[in-house]
């Protein structure tokens, strides 16, 4: 793994700083997630370009409403993804399926855009937290959270290490050759140390063996304000609309 890649992953998870969770129009992350998944699913099985194009139009409007500095980041990822798809699909276009070239690229663009906007509107914390609302065991949430945490911390650690290697290397060498083994080994040791000290930290604060998702993260329907309830009900109405539209076109 390239440190740049890890850094990019960290940035992807950074979006929690713009966490939208507490406004009056709080939509349950489960709903958002389910709608996004449904969109991608329907798009994948749609026979023509109409459905993906419609979804793209709606998502573009949402993108246009974002602040300027977020827009470029949001659009970059689906663009890169569809560019890759185009490259992969070139043989199809050449061998006589030009329409497949267009639809697949379009579908990839749509799917990635939907996911990126989901990531933009919901922080990963709320997203993993929303799994508990689906009655998944809390340990599952704990594991997901831990994975994200380790990804960021170890990624940073890895970047620092490779920087240290680079500073000490006088000739221009590929860092992969120069010390990748050592770096990865150190990272494994570090992660080992981190897991044991994390357990200790938990025990020190009275952990008794069963993990419960924090009540601060849990939100129940009855906790919402009147407006929030209406917003959620209306949002739920999008599901039949989407399905109806899909079967109409």
């Amino acid at each position: 793994m390239d440190p740049k890649f890890i850094r990019a992953l960290g940035n992807l998870l950074q979006s929690d700083s713009v966490a939208a969770g507490s406004g009056t129009f709080y939509i349950f992350p489960v709903q958002r997630l389910a709608l996004a998944v449904l969109c991608i699913l329907l798009c994948a099985i749609s026979k023509n370009a109409v459905f993906p194009v419609t979804v793209i139009a709606v998502e573009l409007v949402r993108t246009a409403l974002l602040p300027g500095d977020r827009i470029s980041e949001v659009l970059l990822r689906p663009m890169i993804a569809s560019l890759f798809t185009m490259l992969i699909m070139i043989p199809a276009a050449v061998t006589g399926y030009p329409s497949a070239f267009g639809t697949v690229t379009l579908k990839v663009f749509e799917s990635v855009l939907v996911l990126v906007l989901l990531n933009e509107s919901v922080s990963w914390k709320d997203l993993t937290g929303s799994f508990s609302a689906l009655h998944l065991p809390d340990v599952f949430v704990y594991t997901l959270d831990g994975a994200v945490r380790y990804l960021v911390i170890l990624g940073r650690f890895c970047t620092k290490l490779s920087e240290a290697v680079r500073i000490r290397t006088f000739r221009k060498t590929n860092w992969r050759k120069s010390g990748a083994g050592g770096i990865m080994g150190t990272v494994v040791l570090k992660s080992n140390e981190m897991t044991s000290s994390q357990y200790e930290a938990m025990v020190c604060r009275g952990f008794r063996g069963t993990y419960r998702v924090s009540p601060l993260r849990r939100r129940r329907f009855k906790d919402l304000t009147g407006r929030g309830k209406i917003a959620n009900i209306l949002y739920a109405g999008l599901f039949p609309v989407l399905l109806g539209f899909f079967f109409a076109v």
Binding site: D145, M194, S197, Q198, A201, M202, R205, G206, P215, R217
Partner: peptide
């Protein structure tokens, strides 16, 4: 090292953890 001591996914959950265990 506070890095190894903090294990929740947000500052507020970090604080809530202890009292929740109580």
């Amino acid at each position: 090292d506070s890095d190894t001591q903090l294990f929740c996914s947000s500052v507020e959950e970090e604080i809530a953890f202890g009292i929740e265990q109580l």
